[in-house]
Design a protein around this nucleic acid. Structure first.
Lengths: 234, 234
DNA sequence: GACGTTTTAGACAATGGCGTCTAGTTTTAC
DNA sequence: GTAAAACTAGACGCCATTGTCTAAAACGTC
């Protein structure tokens, strides 16, 4: 018993460095093994081997298998959220070159948030262990995809307000933007593959082209039209 | 050793009925448990309990856990493919009421092929065990989603040929149709939930509305325009 | 009612993973 | 250099699971 989980807190100086390295090594290895084998199929011994660490060291940092699993998920979620935030900040905010800008954004979104290592990991884990850890993945849902749609609908609203898009329901449009961006990659995403840069580019271009056919206002593309109310079609 | 797997073959009369019922009961129970727990997490004892069957009976029908698993996946795949074929046969082939007809089709597709029990099962299993049984799931990929896109692009082509749609790349349009149809249900699909009829209807309507804004030809909707070449925009 | 097949319940060995413990070694702090 | 902390390697008990085996029961056919 006692307090076994406080080494990093009461450490002075840079004992942290070695410990921190071990911790990260364990987290990475555990993510790898959990992702490939699932929670039930993953063995602590294999994680230890991949991390080049003794089994006891793992139990030293994490009380039990489940503790380690939760720590891994939280770690990956933190990274993924930071990346999502960073990518969202690159959304175009002017109407010039809208097609190219949106395409480049869609490429970044797919490449760094959806098709990347962490994205695949989280999606897989949500499917396999979501029922067992509802609150953990509920927080992922809210902070990951939920935040993505909310932010994207606001950003689309900004473009619409500038007259570059004609959108009646921003929330729906945001989901459709993401869905169209994944349309050509569905299979790859499901099977955990990694698309090439050409495939990413092509998928994004197809998506944005269709998105703009549905929501674009070609005549407003280059001009400085005053903001206009979005058309209400429902 | 000997030949243990030939009872159904050499059976006379309807001893089959009881055996067949047992087999189906085992397959259903195994599908349920494998889906919830994954291959590694599923225990034969639990499957036997759910199937209301003794463990030995399972080993009597299927040599080992892996044999059972493969049989389950093949069984579900067969059902899912039959359902997909059946739904595809209801795709509208005339230009009248296109929006309503496409919406109803999208509802059927989502409800019976993608959000239903078998669809969720297969998607989940592909993610968790795809690497372990590549050829099994490769055949799913070709016969399920692959066939869906191929068939759908042909059906869209038929509509375009009749002048009801203006599509430059049928394959891309087919993928986008499916992707748009799932846009509002992504989260539910990922978490394994089951959408209500209202949600299905709303998702399909949003999808088709956007799809037709991008690919529709409103002036041709009611008239009997002659077939026209699709615009080539790439 | 007799026979063959299937099913059942339970015992069984073998395996493998989890989590603990110990003894010895390395690393870090001062 | 010394002492404390962390790490390693391995052994250990425990438990769940797999797959086999056996004897008894249920079922269907003749």
């Amino acid at each position: 018993m006692k307090d076994r989980m406080t080494p990093a807190v009461r450490m002075t100086g840079h004992t942290q460095r070695g410990q921190c390295a071990k911790r990260m090594s364990i987290l990475d290895a555990a993510a790898d093994v959990f992702c490939r084998q699932g929670f039930a199929g993953a063995s602590i011994d294999e994680i230890a081997a991949v991390a080049c660490v003794s089994r006891q060291t793992i139990y030293n940092h994490y009380r039990e298998k489940e503790t380690l699993f939760v720590a891994v998920v939280e770690d990956v979620m933190k990274r993924a959220n930071a990346m999502l935030f960073s990518v969202l900040s690159t959304f175009p905010d002017h109407a010039d070159d809208l097609e190219d800008e949106l395409t480049a954004f869609a490429v970044r979104l797919n490449k760094n948030c959806i098709c990347n290592h962490d994205g695949k990991f989280l999606r897989k884990l949500v499917q396999t262990e979501g029922e067992r850890y509802p609150h953990l993945f509920e927080s992922w849902r809210q902070q990951g995809p939920g935040k993505l749609i909310t932010a994207l609908s606001a950003l689309l609203g900004r473009l619409a307000h500038k007259g570059a898009l004609a959108i009646d329901d921003f929330d729906v449009a945001a989901r459709q933007f993401v869905a169209l961006g994944n349309a050509d990659l569905q299979m790859m995403i499901l099977l955990g593959g990694t698309p090439t840069d050409e495939e990413l580019e092509k998928a994004a271009r197809n998506a944005v082209r269709t998105f703009l056919k549905a929501y674009g206002r070609p005549e407003a593309e280059k001009a400085g039209h005053p903001p206009q109310l979005a058309a209400i079609s429902g």
